[in-house]
Amino acid sequence: MRLLLATALLLGPADGAHAAGSDVEDRVREIASELRCVVCQNLSVADSPSDLAREMRNVVRDQVQQGKSREEVQAYFVSRYGEYVLLAPPKRGFNLLVWGLPFLAVLAGGGVVYLVARRWAEQKPGVRPTVDPVYAERVRRELKDRE
């Protein structure tokens, strides 16, 4: 019993600290995954093994531990590196084109498909292409010759 109690005492606070630590780490990872590693090619600060990205993660961790929100940490990095540091461009101003254009393109493509399909549907059924009587006659003759 005494041993159990001692084990519980040993594990208890350690577990608590671990839970709080991993919570911070989750927040750091979440925020860092949206920040661009500025010395890499299309890698986030969370994924990059570079020294600078590691230092940036430490800065994110410091700010999270100071109780700063995701937006506040992002704003800090934007104030230092510009919007380039965000992996996803903010949805405003000129950037809206990036977000809106793919949907507009799909809509426009759908419109074209609709118009073409409607034109096909409007064509009168049973209209056969006209055949030059000279060729028709030749086909008939050659078929007859084969018999």
Binding site: V38, V39, L52, E55, M56, V59, R80, Y81, G82
Partner: peptide
Amino acid sequence: PGSKVSIDYGVYG
């Protein structure tokens, strides 16, 4: 140490 000042100045390289 920790590149703190570099990051504060938005240094890339």
